[in-house]
Amino acid sequence: MRRLKPINQKAGRVVDYVAQQKQDVVALQQPQQPVRPHLPMGCTFLFSPGWEADQAGGTAGLCTPVERDIFDCHISCFWPAQVPDMLNHSPNWTGKCSAAQKDWRKIDLVFP
């Protein structure tokens, strides 16, 4: 709210409520959670369809390329995925993939 100034405690709660309604939904959300940087990449968020539901909420466009799933899980998703060891053996396995939505085909295939 830009022009209304909250005066009493309840008005403060109204402002918080309105702000929350405008906020994005995050996983394991708590009431009145402080705003943190939020980068939804994996699964059902934003551009990346997931296993359970696609962007439209249906099942027609679920993830197909396994490399994409691995990549998204590895970077930002809570979903546990087996990924190459970036510290020792395959530090550059994602080196050619600067933007997942375009370059996911360029992720290296890694053979242990």
Binding site: R3, L4, K5, P6, K10, A11, R13
Partner: peptide, 18 residues
């Protein structure tokens, strides 16, 4: 000007445009 909202009982200070 102040606004007392019913039934929330929230009070807001108003500026001239509001």
């Amino acid at each position: 000007d102040f606004l007392y909202l019913v039934p929330s009982a929230a009070i807001f200070g108003l500026d001239e445009p509001t």
